[in-house]
Simulated assay, not measured.
Amino acid sequence: MDVQASGNENQSTPEPAPAPGQENPPANPHAATRTPAIIVGVIAAIIIALSIYYLLRPEPLLVQGEVDATRLDIAARVDGRVKEIPVERGQNVTAGAVLVRIDNPETLAKQDQMRAAKAVADAQLANVLVGTRAETIAARKAEMERAEAAQVLAQKTFDRAKTLTEQGNAPQARLDQTTDALHEAERGLDQAKSAYEQAVNGYTKEERAIAKANVEKAEADIQSVKSVIDQLAVYAPIASQVYQRNVEPGEYVSPGVPLVTLIDLGDLWIHFDLREDLVKGLKVGDRFDVRIPALDDRHVTVEVKLIATKGEYASWRATRATGDFDLRTFSIRAYPVQPVPELRPGMSAYLDWRSRQ
């Protein structure tokens, strides 16, 4: 009985209260020391997992491309001095808009010369078609009549001289003189008759053909000069944008020298140069997204429409382990699936080639 009482007393004895300002001791000191160890272990496991992930994952292959567009180098077909350039760089122009005006005074003067030659040819043709004037015909007829009278007179003189010579009343020299005079009068009469007949009949068909040919030649010369003058104004072949002005007013230009460079914003594509080992599996019609930094990293979906070799080698990547062969470079042209009005030539485009695959 005494032992049980003493045990009850021990069990009911209260623990002394902590002094003021002191915290209660932890109920389980082992749990308090285990929590930091768990946190450290979790952090270490995360670090190890991330390290293994970054070490084992394939290294990204960042491919850079460039936006390009159809470019047109507009050149003049004639020489001269630049008179005016009515367009500015970056300006949108319509088809047929004047890009450059060239001044060439020598060509303009040649056109006036050809027009004068044409007027002369027209006058000659009109003269041929009208025929001989009536006054000319009358004059030729009068000359023929005088030749006939001279021939009659020469014939009578010859007859008298011949009679006198036969009778012995005139020397032989006199007969010879009258004979020569008769022959000369006959030749004069023949010439006068020919001239009169030519005046009456007018020009021959060959002369008319020559006159017409001269007119046609003059017209062709005018058209030739006019075609050169038309080239003094250079026009835009299609609706496009002025990319570059290669000359300024006052400069002398020669045929074939580019004056203005245009770009067709309706025909934009993204150009990539890839080694042939990267082209493996790529085919025309494939689509993938590219990132455009100039457009705030906008993603643009493009479609491959051209895969062509460039005919050169990428010396920075050689397959030395397989027999000293260099990998060729292929040109890839991918067009945006949807129009991107803000896209401009020269902008860069990026994509992770392996993640694309």
Rank of each mutant, 00 (worst) to 15 (best):
L125M: 10
A126G: 11
N127M: 10
N127T: 11
N127K: 12
L129S: 09
V130N: 05
G131R: 01
G131P: 03
T132Y: 05
R133H: 08
R133D: 13
R133G: 10
A134M: 08
T136Y: 03
T136S: 12
T136N: 10
T136C: 02
I137W: 06
I137K: 15
A139C: 01
R140W: 03
K141W: 10
K141D: 12
A142Q: 14
A142T: 10
E143F: 06
E143L: 11
E143N: 12
E145Y: 07
A147I: 00
A149E: 05
A149W: 03
A149M: 06
A149Y: 05
V152K: 15
V152E: 13
V152Q: 14
V152S: 11
L153I: 04
L153C: 00
L153D: 10
L153R: 08
A154Q: 01
A154K: 03
A154Y: 00
Q155I: 02
K156A: 12
T157M: 10
T157W: 04
T157N: 14
T157D: 14
F158R: 14
D159Q: 13
D159V: 01
R160F: 02
R160M: 04
K162P: 02
T163M: 11
T165A: 15
T165G: 08
E166T: 09
E166I: 03
E166H: 09
E166R: 13
Q167S: 10
N169L: 15
A170T: 01
A170D: 05
P171A: 06
Q172V: 13
Q172W: 08
A173E: 15
L175M: 11
L175K: 05
Q177F: 08
T178H: 01
D180G: 10
A181I: 05
L182C: 02
H183F: 11
H183N: 12
E184W: 05
E186K: 06
E186A: 14
E186N: 03
R187F: 08
R187A: 14
G188Y: 00
G188P: 00
L189Q: 15
Q191H: 07
A192D: 01
A192Q: 05
K193S: 08
K193Q: 15
S194Y: 09
A195Q: 15
A195V: 06
Y196Q: 13
E197C: 03
E197K: 12
Q198N: 14
Q198A: 14
A199N: 06
A199Q: 01
V200G: 06
N201C: 04
N201F: 09
G202S: 01
G202N: 07
Y203W: 09
Y203N: 09
T204K: 09
T204R: 13
T204L: 05
E207C: 02
E207F: 04
I210W: 04
K212W: 00
A213C: 07
N214Q: 12
V215E: 04
E216N: 13
E216P: 02
E219Y: 09
D221R: 07
D221T: 02
Q223K: 15
Q223W: 06
S224E: 12
S224G: 11
K226Q: 15
K226W: 09
K226M: 08
V228T: 10
V228S: 12
V228K: 14
V228R: 15
I229N: 08
D230Y: 09
Q231E: 14
Q231T: 01
L232S: 03
L232A: 05
A233G: 00
A233M: 06
A233K: 15
V234L: 02
V234G: 00
P237Q: 03
P237K: 03
I238Q: 07
I238W: 04
S240H: 00
V242S: 03
V242N: 01
